[in-house]
C-alpha cells in the first residue's frame, strides 16, 4: 500500500524527515510512534499526497504522489491531527458535503452518511450542529468523514490526542472494528498505549529518523526486559539510591522523579532493594511498555 525508501523532507535548512524506509502491507495497521516534532505528521502529509518530498522514493497505492496526487487522494481517508469539520453544518451535512469533493453523487453521499453516522455512534446527533458536539464525537465524525469515499487506506494523525479516557476507548473500539473489516490503517501517535492498542507493526521515530521497527511485543522483547520496577526515593535522593542499585537488575534508568530498574522479575528486584537497606517512598512493578523502548532508544521520555 505504501513503500518509502530514503524518504526525506527538508524545510530550508531544517530536516523534518531524514531518509526513512518503511512499507505498509494491505490490511495491516501500521504505526509511527514518536514524540511531538519527530516528523510523523510531515511523513503523513507526504504519504497523503499533499506535500512533495525533498528526496527518496515513495509510492502510495502503487503510484508516485508527485505525479498522481488526485488519484491517490481519491482513495485515501485522512483523519488530521486537528479536526477541520464545518461547525456551521450538521454532522450529516459534513459527511454529505465532504463526499461531494470526491465526486460522489449527492444521493449516494446521503445514504453513506446514514451508515457512517451509525458506525460512529452518532445517529442520534445526526442533525445537531457540529459546534454542539463533544470532542470525542467530533473525532468520531472526522473518522466517519474520512470513510465517506470508501478508502483503501485510512490515515490517522494522533487520533485520540486531547480526548478523555472514555472517549479514547470508544474511538479505539471503532478503529478496531475497521481493522477487523480489513481496512489498512496508518496511525501516528505519541501515546504508547495507543500504539499498543492499534498497531500490529510500528516504527519508532525520533528527529526524523527511524530508531526501531517491529510489532509492539517484539520491540519490547528486543529493547526492554519483561518487567520494570519503578522506585521513587524523593527528588534529590534518586541519584544516590541508583548508585547503590548499580548491580541490581538488567539495566537502570534514572529519571528526575524516579529510578527504573529493568528485570525479568520485578518483585525479586523489590526484595533486593530492601536487602540493600533502601526504603523507596513508593514502588511499583509493571510490565515493560513501548515507553520503555523509547526511553532505551533515545534516552528521553515520549511525553516531555
Amino acid at each position: 500500500m505504501v513503500a518509502a525508501r530514503g524518504l526525506t523532507k527538508r524545510f530550508g535548512d531544517f530536516v523534518a524527515v531524514d531518509g526513512i524506509d518503511f512499507e505498509v502491507a494491505p490490511g495491516e495497521s501500521f504505526g509511527l510512534l514518536g514524540p511531538n516534532g519527530a516528523g510523523k505528521s510531515t511523513t503523513m502529509r507526504m504519504v497523503g499526497a499533499v506535500s512533495a518530498r525533498s528526496g527518496g522514493d515513495l509510492t502510495v497505492l502503487g503510484l508516485d504522489p508527485d505525479d498522481h496526487g488526485p488519484r491517490i487522494r481519491a482513495q485515501l481517508g485522512v483523519v488530521p491531527q486537528e479536526d477541520n469539520l464545518d461547525g456551521e453544518l450538521t454532522a450529516r451535512g459534513n459527511l454529505v458535503t465532504y463526499g461531494r469533493y470526491f465526486g460522489i453523487p449527492r444521493s449516494v453521499c446521503a445514504q453513506r452518511a446514514t451508515e457512517l453516522l451509525e458506525f460512529a455512534q452518532l445517529s442520534e446527533r445526526a442533525d445537531a450542529k457540529v459546534d454542539e458536539l463533544s470532542g470525542g464525537m467530533k473525532r468520531r465524525l472526522t473518522i466517519a468523514r474520512a470513510l465517506v469515499n470508501e478508502p483503501r487506506l485510512l490515515m490517522l494523525d494522533e487520533p485520540t490526542t486531547g480526548l478523555d479516557p472514555q472517549a479514547r476507548h470508544i474511538l479505539w473500539d471503532r478503529l478496531f472494528r475497521l481493522k477487523e473489516q480489513g481496512t489498512t490503517l496508518v496511525v501516528t501517535t505519541h501515546f504508547m498505549d495507543e500504539a499498543e492498542q492499534l498497531c500490529e507493526r510500528l516504527v519508532v521515530v525520533d528527529h526524523g529518523q527511524i530508531m526501531a521497527e517491529g510489532s509492539p511485543a517484539e520491540l519490547i522483547r528486543r529493547y526492554s526486559s519483561r518487567e520494570v520496577a519503578e522506585l521513587r526515593f524523593g527528588t534529590d535522593r534518586n541519584e544516590a539510591a541508583a548508585r547503590v542499585l548499580a548491580e541490581v537488575g538488567d539495566r537502570l534508568e534514572i529519571l528526575p522523579d524516579r529510578v527504573l530498574v529493568y528485570a525479568s522479575d520485578g518483585e525479586a528486584i523489590l526484595e533486593q532493594v530492601a536487602a540493600r537497606g533502601l526504603r523507596p517512598t513508593t514502588s511499583l512493578v509493571r510490565r515493560s511498555s513501548l515507553e520503555d523502548v523509547f526511553l532505551r532508544l533515545t534516552g528521553r521520555s515520549l511525553i516531555e
Binding site: 497523503g48 488526485p70 487522494r73 485515501l76 488530521p80 486537528e82 464545518d86 469533493y101 468523514r145
Partner: peptide, 13 residues
Amino acid sequence: RKLFWGVNATPVE
C-alpha cells in the same frame, strides 16, 4: 476552521 485543509485531503486541487 481550517476547512481548506479538509478539502486539501480530497482529490480537489
